[in-house]
Design a protein around this nucleic acid. Structure first.
Length: 806
DNA sequence: GGGTGTCGGATTTTT
DNA sequence: TCCGACACCC
């Protein structure tokens, strides 16, 4: 191990180095916020490979999100030689999926389809209805209860006091999944645990192969995941079979206990993998010192924690401003003012507004629109959760797995073909009787037996119509062909156009276009990397690949110049020059649901802590004296957490009793307080790559006006748009991860042809693909007849069915 | 079976 | 206030 070093540890501080080079036994790294946690994990992996000659196949690194895994992979690639293969770096779920596929002969689940939580909910709802229990327990409750069952969270489970119902439903749920070869997300882990527990041959083979395990965000693990780690690395209780186990975590950032995460797992880790070496990394490279002091001060109020004190050599002063506002509108106003008073060193894209609940965004949107501040809302409905995406995927899934009941029920009447509740009930009954039927055989059966089953003429027509769609949908076709046939033969686009308003239709077809693009991209890659041994079809591979991807791989280029709005939860792991935490009021932060118990309050405090530690340079904390919630105006008490901030680091202003001009000048002078120690030694010496954002030119000059598609205030938009409209139309827009699409407002007078439909513009159609406009004419207000040259020929299409191609 | 009106409920999120 | 689930009517 002490061979001449080719792998440099120079970029690491002493604690980080220690965490990298301790390559045997169990290691617990307590890495504070901003202490270079990812750097430690990635360097450790690179060190194992480059320095200790550990074969990459024997290393496994587990994360919670695909995003974290992706980032790690990218960073490891840069650290190791190009000949080395990458070790497994991925989520718990994807790793389990991989094991289930690889060892399927041992598992008893040879083929399966993964259902997401929405599918799970739909299935549970059907079961509740079947038993007539829907009045007794809510679908959400039963969903949560079933997950608790699997996670052995009996404490939370007992609260329901509906043991019998839960067990009955769970039993049927398990039966249904087995019949349909379905696995939910939890099952992926459960099945692998079963495999370890029941098959000693598998366990031995596994432990012979996998020798180094790393786990990120250990404070977020649930009991199943902790058990999984034990199965992976212990040959018997207390006997470690792996060469090294490295858990990285920070109990102060545990904010997911409500979904089963157990901070106690950090403590259990010390017992279960004893002897454990613990390394604390407390130097923070992110935040200016006053911000860290505030974070330390606040989190020290939590009783249930091991003391830890972050420190930074980024000296500065007066970096935290606490503003008391009269109401939510003034709060948003002040934030907008601060954003327009940024020093040149901070760009809008390096700012974030964090809040406890999504409901708080509405006021921000309204004010930001009026102020012409470009914003992006992060979070919300994810790509693969969207109805239009799930509908098309349901068709694809049925082609792949003709027994997939969930998918059939999803598209039974989508687009509408007169197959309602009655047909659905009969269909389910009949399929229960003839379980071996494929869905096409079942449809055929329903049509031929329609008389006996009490189905009407319109029912059989609908059923035939549905069956007809699948005639040309053969598994031998390419996915993109299938996609196009689905869209055209089911008349899906027409259905969307009929069902939704223009704006929503546009956004939905744009999502379909994105789906098409990701399909094409996948196919291209698949065909390039096709190996002869793998018999897996492109379709099967595609469906498998996206099963665990709720979010498509991000294209955040459009967001770069926008201020980000997100919940405190989604801010975890991110950092910004300027952070606003809004709504520091009792019942908001801490949330009203947490006021009862000390533990819940502590989690809210950690949430505040996570928010504070996102800030690099400036932190603005706001609260309102009154706020409208659910249409009711309420007086709001200051959050208890405000009193926990260190007084001498804080500037307080009472905006509710100040003139606007006073507020403005206060904000300006606060933000003019320049970096007194802009370049910490760390940034100068070790990490030039994290510098650029400080040096970026002020981009406020290019602030763009965006109109949120869901805004319900059209008249108000009009006024501001006329005032703020840039001369040359709008910049290109991109889908945001959240699906909140920042859209250019069409300002062209309705009697002339807008640029996107003018001759030679590139346009996209969900079925025909991309093409070039040949000519266009006005059809009705905001509707144009556009003649387009598509690869397959000229077509004249109503502009509502087209999108500008960007 | 699909459209319209009323009532109630309303943290946080990933896989 | 606002959104979704459900009930009721055509």
């Amino acid at each position: 191990m002490n061979t001449p070093s080719s792998f440099s540890l120079d970029h690491l501080n002493p604690e980080q180095q220690q965490a990298v080079v301790k390559t045997s036994g169990a290691l617990l790294v307590i890495a504070g916020a901003g202490s270079g946690k990812t750097r430690v994990i990635t360097s450790r992996i690179a060190y194992l490979i480059s320095e200790c000659n550990v074969p990459p196949q024997s290393i496994v690194a587990l994360t919670f999100t695909n995003k974290a895994a992706k980032e790690m992979k990218e960073r490891i690639t840069k650290l190791i030689s190009s000949e080395s293969t990458l070790p497994f770096v991925g989520t718990f779920h994807s790793y389990c999926l991989l094991l289930l596929r690889k060892y399927k002969a041992f598992t008893g689940v040879e083929t399966f389809t993964i259902i997401d939580s929405e599918d799970q909910k739909a299935l549970l709802k059907r079961i509740l209805e079947k038993f007539g229990l829907e009045k007794q327990i809510a679908t959400n409750q039963i969903q949560h209860a079933i997950s608790c069952l699997k996670n052995q969270m009996h404490k939370q489970l007992l609260g329901y006091g509906k043991q019998q119902i839960i067990e009955q439903v769970n039993h049927e749920y398990e039966r249904e999944k087995k019949a349909g070869n379905l696995l939910d997300f939890d099952d992926l882990i459960v099945k692998v645990l079963e495999l370890f527990k029941t098959n000693s041959h598998f366990k031995e083979e596994f432990q012979r192969k996998v020798k180094h395990v790393l786990i990120d965000e250990y404070q977020d693990t649930n009991s199943m995941q902790h058990t999984l780690l034990k199965e992976m690395t212990l040959s018997s209780p207390g006997v470690i079979s792996a060469h090294s186990i490295c858990a990285v975590g920070d109990e102060d950032q545990s904010i997911y206990s409500w979904r089963g995460a157990q901070v106690e797992n950090i403590r259990s880790f010390k017992n279960d993998f004893a002897p454990v070496e613990t390394i604390k990394i407390e130097q923070n490279y992110r935040s200016a010192e006053p911000i860290l002091k505030a974070a330390n001060h606040v989190i020290a109020h939590n009783r249930n924690r091991t003391p830890k004190e972050l420190w930074s050599d980024k000296k500065a002063h007066k970096r935290i401003l606490v503003a008391t506002c009269s109401n939510g509108y003034q709060e948003a106003d002040i934030i907008a003012q601060a954003l327009t008073s940024l020093p040149p060193s901070i760009s809008l894209g390096q700012c974030a507004i964090l809040y406890r609940t999504h409901a708080q965004t509405r006021v921000f949107e309204e004010i930001f629109m009026r102020s012409g501040i470009a914003y992006a809302i992060i979070g919300g409905i994810r790509f693969y959760e969207r109805k239009e995406i799930k509908d098309i995927l349901a068709f694809l899934r049925l082609i792949q797995n003709p027994h997939d009941k969930i998918s059939l029920l999803r598209i039974l009447n989508v687009p509408q073909r007169g197959l309602g509740e009655k047909v659905e009930t009969i269909l389910i009954e009949e399929w229960d009787k003839y379980t071996h039927f494929t869905f096409t055989q079942l449809l055929e059966h329903l049509i031929t037996q329609s008389g006996l089953l009490g189905l009407s003429r319109s029912h059989t027509n609908g059923l035939s119509e549905l069956k007809k769609i699948f005639i040309n949908l053969t598994p031998s076709r390419s996915i993109s062909e299938l996609y196009e046939i689905i869209l055209s033969d089911s008349a899906y686009i027409q259905y969307l156009a009929k069902e939704y308003e223009q704006e929503e239709f546009r956004s939905k077809s744009e999502n379909l276009r994105e789906l098409f693009q990701s399909i094409s991209f996948f196919e291209k890659q698949f065909n390039e990397n096709k190996t002869k041994e793998s018999s897996e079809t492109a379709l099967a591979a595609f469906l498998n690949e996206i099963a665990l991807l709720q979010e498509k791989i991000e294209d955040d280029s459009g967001e770069q110049k926008m201020v980000k709005l997100m919940t405190l939860h989604s801010a975890k792991g991110l950092e910004f020059d300027f952070v606003v935490i809004a709504g520091l009021e009792e019942t908001i932060l801490p949330s009203s649901k947490s006021l009862e118990s000390r533990e819940d309050i502590e989690e809210e405090r950690r949430l505040f802590y996570v928010g504070i530690t996102r800030a690099r340079e400036y932190l603005l904390i706001t609260r309102a004296l009154a706020r409208s919630t659910y249409g009711q105006k309420n007086a709001q008490d200051a959050s208890r957490f405000l009193g926990e901030l260190p007084e001498k680091e804080i500037i307080h202003i009472d905006a509710s009793s100040m003139f606007p001009s006073q507020i403005n000048s206060t904000l300006r002078s606060w933000l003019e307080n320049t970096y007194s120690n802009q370049k910490s030694s760390y940034q100068t010496i070790f990490a030039p790559d994290i510098q650029p954002h400080f040096a970026q030119a002020n981009q406020r000059g290019s602030i763009q006006q965006y109109v949120h598609p869901h805004s319900k205030k059209p008249s108000f938009q009009k006024i501001t748009l006329e005032k703020l409209a840039p001369k040359n139309g709008f910049p290109s827009t991109k889908m945001l991860s959240s699906g909140n699409i920042a859209k250019p407002q069409n300002l062209t007078p309705s009697n002339s042809i807008p640029p996107e439909w003018q001759k030679n513009s590139r346009v996209f159609h969900p079925i025909f693909g991309s093409g070039i406009v040949l000519s266009s004419s006005l059809k009705a207000e905001n509707k144009y007849l556009v003649t387009v040259a598509f690869p397959e020929g000229e077509k004249t299409i109503l502009s509502t069915f087209l999108q500008p191609y960007e």
